[in-house]
Design a protein around this nucleic acid. Structure first.
Lengths: 368, 368
DNA sequence: CTGTTAGCGCATTCAT
DNA sequence: ATGAATGCGCTAACAG
């Protein structure tokens, strides 16, 4: 007959004939207690089915052992792995995490940050905040500890985990040049995106480093979805600028571009090579399998929480920054590089590509 | 100069020259307060940047306004939409939700349920619990309120939201029969899965209802991933049992089957028709686009939380049950039904298929 | 309409 | 090695 959890530490103390203090001590392994009383108390705890009330505990310790994870939208394929990495890391340290979707709405971003503040979470990981700096900063300053993902905000006293997006597109460009391509276009996603701007910067730099001109007409902003990519790709392909390579903001844009190529009769990669970004599951399964710039999303989440926990343990204004370097995964949507041009850091999976991401390749209501 | 949140209700009270009670009242809109004091207090709250401490509040009200969402793995494409539905619904009611991944490990399932118990969440939504009933029940009984997704557990006093999986495969079978197929096999996923057994039941029933024999050799268990589906499909196709239709446990299994068909030179749908289950984003994007049994995952999450909130508001042992009916989405991996056979409830999207799920078709680090 | 008295369940002083 | 007092920040009863 297990009791409901209205069992308190006082009940345990009374039942064991000790003070609440002693119970608290065995609970937290603090102070020295005689082995006998420890056993006695443990038995009573067991028998009564006692579970400490972490609400009460938090009130006095001023730590909730809870974190907040703020993402735009967990159904966006970029974020579930981040969440997994974050939760795994948090759980291993005894923390739980509140998942908050902002749905890319400023007001909801404000709302969840306020909620997390009231919940007195020990720290917050904020991914892809949309709010302008001047609104974001005051909200962040009210949090106990903050780690920002893929955004830098002046004066936020926050740690930062970011992907070296510029390096990613640089790799993509070098890969395409190495495959003999010379007329590259970029489908650059939303201009407002911080990561998007970085990717454009990498694109420009890599072209210039190769002594090639950058044609501004060949950098096209587009919505970061399938349709956006398809539409932008059509524009480029029909502009008769003889483009032979496309660098895309993300994998969905790239897959949209693939669709446009098929429509217009452009062969991939013979006529046009296509590189995506993110390496979502989809990328390895489309036809042809998509070459893409992979970033370990799990690592982003795991690193962000690790940094958060570090900063919780040792608060300090030192603005830590962790940069995660992406790697190019060459699949069938781009040509093999010519042996002359060195293609350092490039991975070409042996099999069709699915093998490259075994852990994520699953679905089902009840994977049991 | 906004103060840090060590501002308490007492500070506000002192500064405003009223009692903490009055402050509490304006905070919660309880009792009647003169408009003047309300304004006075509100001003001070504003000026001091006071935010109520929900930890302290929860200790006395015995409500945390927090929920737990337990899923096997948020990177499994089946769950992000459930999480979105759950979080949206919770947030609209002022609740926050802890996301817990069990990684399909029994011990972690135990761990997170215990953690949620200590956090004193007001309720828990548990998806696809793996734990056997006798271990699960005691853990669930310790929770304040429980809603189970896709699992029925005797004696858990829990609400249930479940998909009518049997009906789903029944629809799939009827669809294939309507398209003239007669030798159907089922790649049935993990035998331990509750939903999997339901799907097999639907498969059997639909065949029998059509007066066809059920060949036990044509029901193959398999891991619920791409590889599992590919492997099982190869076995069936090579068994020279002249199978002309495959009903699959989920979309990944089906896509694996698609790959196996291509390898072995079987044309889809001419030689073999394939039906998946779940309608994840992937399904509409593979070649050929996959016919599948769609279930609104968002609704599952939203309904589960709504039911949870209802039960929190009006506790009662009445075991509520909500059954969500799936619908068949016909794409190119199955033949058109013969006009003779009525194919009620079937949807055939006008375009390639992507148009059918616009909201989910996106990805990107910074969708901004 | 407002203030006072309690106490939620626990950990942190101090004592012993 | 253990116990007693105190308070974390807030709301629920009662008073007035």
């Amino acid at each position: 007959m297990i009791a409901r959890s209205n069992v308190t530490i006082a009940d345990v103390a009374r039942e064991a004939g000790v003070s609440t203090q002693t119970v608290s001590r065995v609970l937290n392994n603090k102070g020295e207690i005689s082995p006998e009383t420890r056993r006695l108390v443990s038995d009573v705890i067991q028998r009564l089915g006692y579970r400490p009330n972490s609400v009460a505990r938090s009130l006095v310790t001023r730590r909730t052992l809870s974190l907040g994870l703020v993402v735009p939208d967990i159904t966006n394929p970029f974020f579930p792995e981040i969440a997994r990495g974050a939760e795994d890391t948090a759980l291993a340290a005894g923390y739980s995490v509140f998942l908050c979707n902002t749905t890319e709405q400023a007001e909801r971003e404000v709302a969840v940050l306020r909620l997390l503040e009231e919940k007195r979470v020990d720290g917050v990981v904020v991914c892809s905040a949309r709010l302008p700096d001047d609104q974001l900063v005051p909200l962040l300053r009210r949090q106990r500890t903050v780690v920002l993902v893929n955004r830098i905000v002046a004066g936020a006293a926050a740690g930062v985990v970011r992907v070296d997006d510029a390096d990613g597109t640089r790799q993509a460009v070098r890969h395409l040049l190495g495959g003999g391509r010379r007329r590259l276009a970029m489908l650059s996603g939303p201009p407002a995106s911080w990561g998007g701007r970085e990717r454009v910067r990498g694109f420009r730099e890599a072209l210039q480093a190769a002594g090639l001109a950058v044609d501004p007409e060949l950098i096209l902003a587009c919505p970061p979805y399938l349709d956006g990519g398809a539409r932008a790709a059509r524009r480029v392909l029909l502009s008769r600028r003889a483009v032979d390579g496309l660098v895309c903001y993300n994998d969905l844009v790239a897959i949209g571009a693939l669709q446009a190529c098929r429509e217009l009769g452009a062969r991939v990669p013979e006529d046009v090579a296509v590189v995506g970004c993110d390496d979502i599951l989809l990328a390895s399964l489309v036809t042809p399998p998509l070459s893409t710039i992979r970033v370990s999303k799990y690592d982003i989440g795991a690193s962000a929480v690790r940094m958060l926990l570090d900063r919780i343990a040792a608060p300090g204004p030192e603005a830590a920054e962790l940069v995660i370097r992406p790697t190019l995964v060459a699949r069938a949507s781009t040509p093999e590089p010519h042996p002359a041009a060195g293609a350092a850091g490039t991975t070409r999976p042996a099999a069709g590509g699915a093998a490259a991401r075994p852990s994520a390749a699953r679905a089902g209501c009840e994977p049991g």
